[in-house]
Design a protein around this nucleic acid. Structure first.
Length: 1044
RNA sequence: GGGGAAGUGUCGGAAUAGGCAGACGAGCAUGACUUAGGAUCAUGUGCCGCGAGGCGUGCGGGUUCAAGUCCCGCCUUCCCCA
């Protein structure tokens, strides 16, 4: 018998050996094809968690597999080491961010080593070290020279009490309060640095050169949000501008995707931050506009843009001129328009835009339809007593559909549905004749017609809107307080879904353009506008330039100085890096200490030599992670040597060989930030002449998330007394969570409460006392001793386990799975294999602590399978022919499917195939042990398993006497011919149901198969008394007989 | 509201050029070996039915010799956008 499998002994042993032999050192080797496998680097928060393992271990398996296939594989690792948590630790615990970060890295590096991954640690790169961030600064400088960098005012979230800017995650909840002090957060305008990612917007929409998941491509496409349309210039009415205004001051450029709706623009809306608001607002409107601007500043973008939200806004008192018809339209300020989107000004076309419609209805602005419906639908509500009683019969004769039903409490009316121009016209004519004096009728949807006694009006202009409303006012039904025709109509439920649409129908009510078909409308109007200098075709992007400024200490310094004489001066390349000073005093508020560090702040101007101040903002950490894949090529390149504008930031030979990344793996949560920024970065570097390719990562795959394991809570049976709504515990009996079968029935009685523990804190237990989920609060004394099943001695209520649902793992929820503990009890190989096997990799799911036992059993079986002779051994080493053939087939099948599965990231099925091969070996063992085939099959299993369980296979490889190292062997290849079965079993379907199975030699002809099927006794029985219509043998897979 | 993804045994999940649904595990059950078992080995395990047999991939239709897979219409969940 072999020694038992002991990963705790084997794993460190081989890790040290591999280290000594530099087995995973990746060096350029022109004789081999390269493969750059990259997995997202961790942020050093202090602990490598199961999510890191889930991302990295299968990626490592695939990298190892590629290496065995003959590729020279680079699989590096580093740390994304700048960022806010380090600074928070400094403030809260008085630890320097650098010390905190480097200590975390030291710990995490050890944790990662326990995984046994083929990481080349000599290429490790840490983004917070000067050798790294010198180049981060160099890129800022380079992009500055390329014109990709600019500075402008931009709002940040700011806490007036802490006097500090806040990161997005530091602003809490809908109330938008500061996470540190709870004060309301406000927006504050600061000069900040931007990178022109928008210059690359169109190129970033092109994914033709990369194999990335559809989902990520879609997210990026939506994020970039390219829309085509036109820019149209509206002028502020001259009398609403200051007399001394420069020419062009009042030009309001509007971007619209629907220039064909221009004739329906009945108002304009400016973003509260729009600079023209101040200029045009009439004095009497100043107070309300200013108040509104302040309120808007406190809200988040998501709130502002929500369609759910009640529309708000204020009138400026000023008017603009609609360029297409000269109409004076009011200019409003409203928060649903964002300064950053388009131009910060929109034209309101309420008839064909939902948000404009909501705004117009709220503030009584006219709504004029200018695009016809595509479906030709129209409706008309005929009020009771507005027509003679025989009108329904008239409609019947005309073939017009209607429904008779009460209208409020006014009596029975007719709800008429019309379709098509002709029918609408016929209806209007019938109504014109039938309408009784003192009433009116309307047709809405297609047509927009108002029928009055003796007159028919169209709702085709603001003037018509007013005229119609005035006429209605004199008639029945009453108009009430309604300010526009549409507002009046909007109260009628029958019309609710027909008033507003955004289809591309034929233009109506648009002077000379009326009748222009929808498919030509935008193009024709845009051309016409351009010819008259009123506008032009334009493209708008949702994507905004990348704001790289952070008002923080722990980030890469922005290499800029401010000189009184020379203005903004970039730090010369030769002077990089601008070092982050270590001796800084952290403000309890979180304000950047750089702003008060005299040594850092004061410098000399590189241009004139006079006194100057340094930029105190640092760069967004996404800048550091936008180029880390290149940092691994030659970490901290040329550290200590001066560099200049023409230097290369990494070893050109390394780049020429390894770049770009072949396979990139990581979480999908970075879809639109990191993954878009790094693409931009590479394109900018290409234009800088640094790299000669367009995309940083050729193939991307995302893994899912491992969630917390659901678990019932312990059952507690509590004796005690009621104190109001709460129960005071005197004695607690516990039934373990593991066996609910032993639990007593849940109860809620006068002196007793019994149920599942759902939650617990220092003073209370929340107990589920009914199957429906009713909770009872039980007051406890934390020191109260309780006996807990499966635990030695007496515990306290703090040892009770409470119910856990499937949720994201978090320390506060106490559902974290710690990989270190799993490695300690099961070993890294077992954990690696389980993470591959347990879930669809791209999907993830809840942890299952039971499932890992299956892997334990499997690896133990492999361990003894290859070492121990069979229990009841046969004397002969000559294998039984059939058993041998079956084993051979199983081996080649496994080679083929494991290869294909690893290639396509189907890790769970790869493990399943390896288990099957193990099962096949077990089955064949008594017959084949010791034969050449047995040796070959065991060898094959170990090689296929080597990437998955590198330590165990290395140990077995060496125990079996093979030369070190298994990880330097070639990946096995399969023989298609050996995959085929000698005999095949075919199902026979009769009318689609499997009725029999027949066995035939492999490669039988279709005729032979048909004959065999029809002569099969079972088939014969099923065919009795029926007529065979046809017999099909598709691809030799089955027989399908059709009978009558 | 728009866009996307997904719904398969008790659970994780297999299977898509349309071709035997439930691979491989977990769990459960029975048996063996055991002083014992949360060890190991063997067998079984979609549902209903004693049985022959019938039913079965969210629901309802359709195409086809044949549908988890294709088409149409719904329902539910998750994600993104608004």
């Amino acid at each position: 018998m072999s020694e038992p499998y002991n990963p705790q002994e084997i794993e460190p042993k081989w890790q040290e050996q591999w280290d000594r032999d530099a087995l995973y050192r990746a060096v350029i080797d022109e004789s081999k094809p390269k493969f750059y496998a990259l997995t997202m680097l961790p942020y050093p928060s202090g602990d490598i968690h199961i999510g890191h393992w889930y991302a990295m271990a299968p990626s490592d398996v695939r990298a190892r597999y590629k290496r065995m296939q003959g590729y020279n594989v680079l699989f590096p690792m580093g740390f994304d080491a700048f960022g806010l948590p380090a600074e928070n630790a400094a403030i809260q615990r008085n630890i320097h961010p650098k010390a905190w970060t480097m200590a975390n890295i030291a710990r995490e590096r050890q944790q990662l080593r326990s995984m046994g991954a083929m990481i080349d640690w000599e290429r490790e790169a840490i983004s917070c070290l000067p050798g790294y961030y010198r180049w981060t600064e160099w890129f800022f400088r380079k992009f500055y020279d390329m014109g990709l960098v600019y500075r402008k005012m931009s709002p940040v979230d700011y806490c007036p009490s802490c006097k500090t800017t806040l990161a997005r995650e530091q602003v809490i909840g809908e109330e938008r309060i500061c996470e540190r002090c709870g004060s309301p957060v406000v927006k504050k305008d600061l000069e900040q640095w931007f990178w022109k990612i928008t210059d690359y917007a169109d190129e970033l929409l092109d994914f033709s050169k990369i194999d990335w998941p559809e989902r990520i491509r879609l997210l990026q496409t939506n994020w970039i949000g390219r829309s085509e349309g036109a820019e149209v210039v509206f002028r502020v009415a001259p009398e609403d501008l200051p007399a001394d205004a420069a020419p062009g001051t009042g030009d309001l450029v509007v971007f619209t995707t629907r220039p064909d709706t221009l004739w329906g623009a009945t108002f304009m809306v400016l973003a509260p931050e729009h600079p023209l608001v101040e200029v045009i607002t009439k004095p009497e409107h100043h107070p309300s506009v200013h108040e509104y601007q302040f309120q808007a500043g406190r809200q988040s973008e998501i709130e502002r843009l929500s369609t759910e939200k009640e529309k708000t806004g204020v009138f400026t008192g000023a008017y603009a001129i609609n360029p297409v018809n000269g109409a004076r339209i009011p200019i409003w300020v409203a928060d649903y328009v964002m300064m950053g989107y388009g131009t910060g000004a929109i034209m309101g076309v309420p008839a064909h835009d939902e948000r404009d419609a909501a705004f117009a209805l709220k503030f009584g602005l006219p709504i004029i339809p200018v695009i016809d419906r595509l479906d030709g639908e129209a409706r008309s509500l005929v009020f009771p007593a507005s027509v003679p009683p025989d009108f329904a019969a008239t409609l019947d004769r005309a073939g017009i559909a209607y429904r008779a039903a009460p209208v409020g409490d006014l009596g029975e009316g007719l709800y008429v549905s019309l379709h098509g121009k002709e029918q609408i016209e016929r209806y209007v004519e019938l109504m014109r004749q039938a309408l009784l004096p003192g009433h009116w009728n309307d047709v809405v949807g297609s047509g927009w017609t108002f029928i009055f006694p003796g007159e028919v009006c169209q709702l085709d202009s603001v003037e018509a809107d007013r005229a119609i409303l005035a006429r209605c006012r004199a008639l029945d039904p009453p108009v009430g307080e309604n300010r526009t025709v549409m507002e009046m109509l909007s109260h009628c439920e029958f019309y609710s879904d027909i008033l507003i649409h955004h289809e591309h129908g034929t233009m109506i009510n648009s002077s000379a353009f009326t009748g222009t078909p929808g498919d030509q409308a935008i193009h024709k109007v845009t051309t016409w506008l351009a010819d008259r200098g009123m506008g032009k075709a334009a493209v708008n992007y949702r994507l905004r330039d990348w704001l790289v400024s952070r008002q923080r200490y722990w980030g890469a310094p922005i290499p800029i100085v401010y000189c009184d004489q020379c203005g903004i001066v970039p730090v010369p390349y030769e002077d990089l890096p601008v070092l982050l000073p270590d001796d800084v005093a952290f403000m309890p508020t979180g304000e950047s200490p750089l702003r008060y560090h005299e040594g850092f702040l004061n410098t000399t101007c590189p241009k004139c030599g006079g006194p100057a101040k340094r930029e105190t903002d640092t760069m967004d950490t996404f800048v550091c992670s936008s180029w880390y894949q290149y940092a691994y090529l030659s970490p901290y390149y040329r550290e200590g040597e001066p560099v200049d504008a023409t230097s290369l930031p990494w070893d050109p030979a390394e780049q020429a060989y390894w770049a770009p990344v072949d396979t990139y793996t990581g979480g999908a949560e970075h879809a639109v930030m990191h993954l878009l920024y790094t693409r931009f970065f590479t394109k900018a570097l290409r234009d800088a002449g640094v790299v000669d390719f367009d995309e940083p990562m050729l193939q991307l795959r995302n893994q899912g998330v491992i969630l917390g394991e659901p678990r019932p809570g312990d059952c507690v049976d509590v004796q005690g007394t009621w104190e109001g709504a709460a129960f005071h515990a005197e004695r607690i009996t516990v039934y373990g969570f593991a066996d609910p079968a032993t639990w007593p029935a849940f109860a809620r009685e006068a002196t007793r409460v019994c149920g599942e523990l759902m939650d617990r804190d220092e003073t209370t237990l929340k107990v589920r006392t009914s199957d429906a989920g009713g909770l009872t609060v039980v007051h406890i004394n934390a020191e109260m001793p309780v006996a807990i099943p499966g635990k030695e001695g007496l515990g306290t209520v703090n040892d009770l386990l409470y119910h856990l649902d499937v949720e994201k793992m978090s320390k506060s929820k106490k559902n974290v799975v710690a990989p270190d503990a799993l490695v300690a009890s099961y070993g890294a190989d077992t954990l690696r294999a389980y993470l591959m096997f347990g879930w669809r990799w791209e999907q993830g799911g809840p942890w299952d602590s039971q499932g890992i036992e299956g892997i334990v059993r499997w690896l133990n079986r492999v361990w003894s399978l290859v070492q121990d002779p069979p229990r009841e051994s046969r004397d002969a080493v000559v294998p039984d022919q059939a058993a041998a053939r079956e084993l051979q087939r199983a081996l080649h099948y496994a080679i083929k499917s494991v290869t294909e599965d690893l290639e396509t990231f189907s890790f769970n099925t790869a493990i399943a195939r390896l288990m099957e091969l193990t099962n096949a070996l077990s089955k064949a063992k008594p017959n084949c042990w010791g034969s050449d085939l047995w040796t070959e099959a065991v060898r094959g299993l170990l090689l296929l398993l080597a990437p998955v369980t590198p330590h165990m296979t290395e140990e077995l490889w060496s125990l079996l006497g093979y030369p070190y190292s298994i990880h330097q062997q070639d990946w096995p290849v399969w023989d298609e011919a050996l995959l085929l079965e000698d005999t095949i079993e075919l199902p026979v379907q009769i009318n689609g149901k499997v009725r029999a199975r027949i066995t035939l030699p492999a490669g039988s002809s279709e005729e032979a198969i048909k004959a065999a099927a029809l002569s099969d006794a079972q088939v014969q029985r099923n065919l009795e008394g029926k007529q065979v219509v046809k017999v099909i043998v598709p691809r030799g897979q089955l027989v399908s007989i059709v009978v009558k």
